[in-house]
Design a protein around this nucleic acid. Structure first.
Lengths: 89, 89
DNA sequence: TGAGGTTACGCCTATCGTAATAATG
DNA sequence: CATTATTACGATAGGCGTAACCTCA
């Protein structure tokens, strides 16, 4: 699992389309498609249901989404906290 | 920032030595040394004070450590939650 | 057949390990 | 000089983009 995979996952979950997510992430479609697949393989669960119109979160995907957002927020907070502490050091 | 960097950082913080941390991580010393440096560069702060006997957390490092642990726990919980939800899907 | 997602394939960057180089007590 | 960290450098793996392919309404 990587932070990039988590970002890609959240983007697809919010957009409902790999293509649209890729555009927002400024990355090509296959990059997102592959990383979502890698993530699913590692977790041993399908995170999305593929429909002919796009991707919809599966129940496992919904479970993962909450955690995923928390992780990214944790990363942001960590960076902010360190940058803030710099002046105090 | 990557999850590997966070793992390396925590290991060094706990061991107090790059070498010992590397051994525990089953990776060579320079890999850890470099990633710690990359992390420090990205965060714009020194996370450790280098002594001739090893590495000691700086005040910025102490700030980061709490966040770092939380992030990794978040990752673990996320994976566990998805694996648990698999059977429920 | 059009609107999506995925697989194939070649390139390129990032990371690694070994070996060499500091630095410090 | 022993101990520990860092830098150099060549090799490799993982990620990306383009292009080709698949699937479903």
């Amino acid at each position: 699992m990587s932070l990039a995979q988590i970002r890609y996952f959240i983007a697809v979950a919010e957009e409902g389309h790999v293509g649209r997510a890729a555009h927002g992430l400024r990355v090509a479609q296959p990059a997102v498609s592959r990383q979502i697949k890698n993530l699913e393989d590692e977790l041993g669960a399908l995170l999305f249901v593929r429909t002919s119109r796009g991707m919809q979160l599966s129940s496992s995907g919904r479970v993962f989404l909450d955690h995923a957002r928390g992780i990214l927020q944790g990363v942001e907070h960590a960076a902010l906290a360190v940058r803030a502490s710099r002046s105090t050091s």
